[in-house]
Structures are given as structure tokens and as C-alpha cells.
Amino acid sequence: MSTLFLVATPIGNLKDFSPRAVEVLNSVDYIACEDTRTSSKLLQAYQINKPTFSFHQHNEHKKVDYLTDLLMSGSQVALITDAGMPGISDPGFLASRAAHQKGIPVVVIPGPDAATTALAGSGLPCDRYVFEGFLPHKKGRQKRLKELAEEERTIILYESPNRLIKLLRELGEYFGKERLAAVCRELTKTYEEITRAPLSDLQQNYENRDSVKGEIVVIIAGKKYSE
């Protein structure tokens, strides 16, 4: 029977790829990639030679039918993202949903993801947390910030380098400048950095830098947390 494999990929360090993930990718007929150019580096590093096709936020609805047609015809298909777990802040969930709707088994090959890696390294409570991904850029952003300011669980946000300072300013405004948080940047890569401090200090830290680069996760303590 055909199976859709959701395969987690390294978030930075290619050595984090699991032997089981390599075995699965070598066994399938096709690999759906968020970006075939990015994925080619990983596949080449592990000498995986399988047909690939793109599956990303700009073509996911069109490619869902293609992917399910492959599965229904008897092909084994794996879905990978540029980094981390398929379905987390990418359209992978559409593929998983479509497979379930067609009665096709879905198997997850676990691995690293930036959200829980940052959470574990932040030194903030990990027992209860809420993952928000990227906040809305415009519509609904202020409302969501107000709601999250009352959240008692640890909060996980994704942000781009060029919008980090704006985010830290907004968090200080809505959450209070003394709310403890951590900015986790370039996780598992050469210049990995976790900076943990009150929001006001984090804002000042990054405003004083010439530039901010890399993939970023921001972890914020819940409303009632104190040290």
C-alpha cells in the first residue's frame, strides 16, 4: 500500500539527519520538497537520488492533487521541508490532510524543529506552551498581541531578521518591558546564539547591532512567570 512519509530535516546542521530518515528517502519513489534547490544539498550530502518536485506555499493547492494522484497510483511519496518538520509553518498539513481523506496511511519520521529546540534552550518553562508561528503582519496583529499578553503559557514565535526589532518593541509595549524572553538565532549552525533577558534589554541589544541575520525563534515567558 502507498504511504505518505512526512520526514523531518535538519534545521541547520546536516549531521542531525537520522538514519531512519535517510533509509525512508532512499526507499520512496518521489520526494516532495519545499524548495528543490535547498533540498538538493541535503540529498546530495546523503547520496539520495530520487525524483523530486516542489511543494510550497505558492503551489500547494495545485500540487496536492498531483501528490495524491501519485499515491493513489501506487507510488510511495516522502514530503520534506527546507528545515524542520513538515506542516509547521509550511503547507505540509494540506498534504497530510489530503492523504487521510483518501484513506492513504501517513507516517511521520520525527526529527528536529526550531520551535522545540529553541524552547528547550531558552531556560523558560517547557511544560506548557503555545506555538504561534509568525504573527499577522497587519490585519489582526494588535489584537493578537493583546490576547497573547494575557497568555500564562510560554509563547513561541517565529520572526524574520529584518522584523525582529519591530517585534521586540511591540512585545515590550503589550507584554511589559520586564517580561522575560529569549531570542534564539541560527540554531544548530556555526553562529548559534540564545540571548535571554527582559524584553527591554533584548530590544536594546539588537538595536545596537549593525545587522541581524539568520533564522529566528522568540520565546516569551507566560504572564505569571517570575524568577
Rank of each mutant, 00 (worst) to 15 (best):
M1Y: 03
T3G: 09
L6Y: 09
G12A: 02
N13P: 01
K15I: 00
D16Y: 02
V22Q: 13
E23G: 07
V24N: 05
V24F: 03
L25P: 11
S27N: 12
S27M: 03
V28H: 02
A32G: 06
T36S: 13
S39I: 05
S40V: 08
L42M: 04
L43D: 08
A45H: 14
Y46V: 01
Q47T: 08
K50S: 12
F53Q: 07
F53E: 07
S54R: 06
S54V: 04
F55I: 06
K62R: 14
D69W: 03
D69Q: 15
M72S: 14
S75R: 14
L79D: 07
T81W: 13
D82K: 00
G84V: 08
P86N: 13
G87Q: 05
I88T: 03
D90N: 09
P91N: 10
G92L: 05
S96F: 04
A98I: 02
A98N: 08
A99D: 11
K102C: 13
V107K: 07
V107N: 06
I109S: 04
D113P: 03
A114R: 13
A118S: 14
P125K: 11
R128H: 13
Y129M: 05
E132V: 15
E132W: 07
G133N: 08
P136W: 08
K138M: 02
G140R: 11
E150Y: 07
E150A: 13
T154K: 04
I155V: 14
L157D: 03
E159A: 04
R163Q: 01
R163D: 02
I165L: 09
L168F: 07
E170Q: 10
Y174N: 03
F175C: 00
K177V: 10
E178Q: 14
R179A: 09
R179F: 12
R179E: 13
A182L: 07
V183Q: 05
V183C: 04
C184A: 15
L187Q: 02
K189L: 00
T190E: 05
I194Y: 15
T195K: 13
R196D: 06
A197D: 15
N205A: 08
Y206A: 00
E207N: 04
N208Y: 02
V212L: 03
E215D: 09
I216N: 11
K224P: 01
Y225F: 15
